[in-house]
């Protein structure tokens, strides 16, 4: 296919910068969507020396500069979330020591500049310590609940949700319910609202 045709098709199916701006503006009447994005950003930065707020800011700037393409059929909050996840994912992959992984999982061009910027913040012993302490914190938090702790350990090992459900003999609903329990317990402790 001709490259111009591909570009035309891409521009027909993606939002312009002004359309992205309009959709983000319209989110001001929907505070719940912003709360979802804030919380999701904080989770994506779990154990990393980067704040969720900074991650959200970087991604919003990229979107407003037109450096991120958003499909027209995609809700704007899903687009922003996807961009945040992609950026952190690229950052984590780039840090893998295994040279084979470096070859296979190159950071996307969209993310490469930001990854370079964020990568510097991870190159300290303090940052590594924070990540280790976060893992320990989660293990301690759920040490009395075997099911939730097993889910967490499988997640740390990189198992997919379907794998975890199969290994633990859980239905999709039971798995989702367990995740909510993990999230709520963590959030309650983080906000100091102990039961």
């Amino acid at each position: 296919m001709d490259i111009n045709l591909i570009e035309n098709e891409l521009s027909e199916n993606t939002l312009s910068v002004s359309e992205i701006r309009a959709r983000l503006d319209s989110l001001s009447s929907d505070k719940v969507k912003w709360i979802k994005l804030e919380k999701a950003a904080n989770y994506l930065c779990l154990g990393l020396p980067i704040s969720g707020g900074d991650l959200l800011h970087i991604v919003l700037c990229k979107a407003l500069e037109g450096k991120r393409k958003c499909r027209k059929d995609l809700p704007i909050e899903v687009f922003i979330y996807g961009a945040m996840e992609s950026l952190i994912d690229s950052l984590i992959k780039k840090r893998r020591k295994d040279p084979l992984n470096h070859t296979l999982q190159v950071a996307e061009d969209n993310d490469s500049n930001d990854v370079e910027l964020l990568n510097k913040t991870l190159d300290t012993p303090e940052a590594e310590l924070i990540a280790k302490q976060t893992i320990q914190y989660f293990k301690e938090l759920f040490k009395n609940d075997e099911k939730l702790q097993s889910i967490l350990l499988y997640q740390m090992d990189g198992s997919s949700p379907l794998d975890i459900q199969n290994k633990m003999n859980l239905t999709a609903v039971q798995y989702a319910s367990a995740l909510k329990a993990i999230r709520r317990k963590y959030e309650k402790l983080e906000t100091g609202n102990h039961e």
Binding site: K39, L46, A131, Q155, L179, Y186
Partner: peptide, 20 residues
């Protein structure tokens, strides 16, 4: 088998998706 950052990201991503 995975470094600390990957492990925290696996947890964080799962919980973030759960939120979304």
């Amino acid at each position: 088998s995975r470094n600390s950052y990957e492990q925290t990201f696996q947890i964080g991503r799962t919980l973030a998706r759960n939120i979304m």
